[in-house]
Design a protein around this nucleic acid. Structure first.
Ligand SMILES: NC(=O)c1ccc[n+]([C@@H]2O[C@H](COP(=O)([O-])OP(=O)(O)OC[C@H]3O[C@@H](n4cnc5c(N)ncnc54)[C@H](O)[C@@H]3O)[C@@H](O)[C@H]2O)c1
Ligand SMILES: NC(=O)c1ccc[n+]([C@@H]2O[C@H](COP(=O)([O-])OP(=O)(O)OC[C@H]3O[C@@H](n4cnc5c(N)ncnc54)[C@H](O)[C@@H]3O)[C@@H](O)[C@H]2O)c1
Lengths: 216, 216
DNA sequence: CTTCCTCTGTGAATATTTTCACTAATAGTA
DNA sequence: TACTATTAGTGAAAATATTCACAGAGGAAG
């Protein structure tokens, strides 16, 4: 059944499943059961099967899933195939760390530009990725058809940078800044990742778990 | 009503609300309406009120919410007050960037230790935070009652590091590594943050939005 | 003192997501 | 062939979360 819509949580889990499948394929595995995927993601097997079922029938009743087939299927249905031109804004300590992230290079996300206001820093880059001053964001984003961006600038510049990116045509932003971005449009997706907020969520969830288990 | 349990998504949103309240308080604001909070978080006002209502009545019908009162109330109910001893494992480029994160210093999360296997790197630290070799993780975590940890080691060492941390008594882990952690226990909370996975989720959600709006 | 206005808090309705129990497929085996 | 064992796929039930519409609170204005 093609018409059924996939719940957002399922989409997010499918991305994690994809990641796991890549690892398993690199380890030389060819087939995998929902059970095994579930163990990795700490979810029951039926939940994995349900997630996969949203994007169509693909498994085999006796050998489980063929890894490369399932991988291709998820990529296809979630529109994860094809190269996505990506950029990074803010070449401070966090931005530099992200440039070192080797796993990104082997993915379909291609870092084609980095931006910073500070020209001295720009001169220090030894990487092959072209660096530009921040005032060129809109122009370069357009020129290279950049669709996704990673923001690692000081908090107060976040919204300004986001505005420029969106104006240039970026449709997805990962924001490592503590300032939330408002895009004002519903065709732009933003994921905010803030360490302090994550720590708080962690702490609150731990407290919740304690209550849960007290009730058992 | 005290007995009602707070949904997990509400808890997570309350953490973001708290963050916003801090900013507003620093800006000198004293009172705030659910409407304003909602605009910031891009949610309807009734949703903000509902979230707050889970932790009890606190608002005023004419002036909205008193910011410092609401802040204290959220902190109290979500058990976010009190100092949490925290550590960082893996002092590479990402770990170093995180040590620079100034906002953490003004929070209740106190970084009391950093760990690395590489002793040369340990010698290079100029910070006040004590650094230890990785084999001391369990011992130091116990000694300082560390409850939360941030992992930024190479992917293959992730699970091993997590095991040591949990053995020492850590109950919350933020994992910046692409390898998911399995704690094997339900009193340990893990938040996995992987850039590549986030980019994929972004891309998949953008595709989903396109479908959505096509249907409108 | 009454009316009006605005804002919170919330029960109930709706929507979404997860869980469960079962069907069907397939291969190995006696 | 018939039986067993194993695993995917899936409707339906249950659980969870979001949305909505309105009651009630209380200050301001006349
Ligand atoms: N999410 C996390 O876990 C986490 C961790 C650490 C830091 N941070 C946040 O990430 C951001 C960057 O942190 P950092 O330690 O790398 O800071 P940093 O000061 O080292 O780097 C910021 C960089 O942005 C550049 N910049 C400033 N304004 C700019 C603009 N308008 N356009 C383009 N570039 C601009 C600066 O020149 C600098 O190179 C901060 O907002 C910080 O709070 C987040
Ligand atoms: N989530 C993200 O956005 C993101 C971005 C970049 C990198 N990463 C990931 O973060 C991790 C660290 O990245 P990096 O660029 O800082 O790498 P890095 O190599 O610069 O640093 C890793 C550090 O961990 C130390 N280390 C190795 N084994 C250890 C162990 N068993 N115990 C303690 N310390 C140990 C090393 O000595 C080194 O200092 C990697 O797994 C990388 O994939 C994540």
């Amino acid at each position: 059944m093609e018409i059924k819509r996939t719940p957002k949580p399922s989409i997010i889990r499918l991305c994690s499943i994809l990641n796991f499948l890549e690892d398993q394929e690199n380890l030389g595995k060819e087939n995998i059961f929902s059970q095994e995927i579930g163990e990795y993601l700490d979810l029951p097997a039926f939940s994995i099967r349900k997630d996969i079922s949203y994007i169509g029938e693909i498994g085999n009743t006796i050998a489980g899933y063929n890894i490369s087939k399932l991988k291709a299927h998820i990529e296809d249905k979630l529109k994860l195939s094809g190269t996505q031109n990506t950029c990074l804004v803010g070449l401070g300590s966090l931005g530099t760390a992200i440039l070192n992230y080797e796993k990104l290079n082997s993915s379909n996300f291609k870092l084609v530009a980095v931006f910073d206001t500070n020209l001295n820093k720009l001169e220090m880059i030894k990487l092959k990725i072209r660096a530009y001053p921040a005032y060129q964001i809109e122009e370069i984003v357009k020129k290279h058809s950049i669709t996704a961006a990673i923001i690692t600038v000081p908090s107060k510049s976040t919204q300004e940078v986001a505005n420029k990116l969106i104006k240039g045509g970026v449709r997805g932003i990962i924001n490592f800044t503590p300032t939330l971005i408002r895009s004002g449009r519903n065709d732009v997706v933003v994921r905010n990742i803030d360490l302090l907020n994550e720590l708080r969520i962690l702490q609150a969830l731990i407290a919740l778990k304690s209550i849960d288990s007290a009730g058992e």
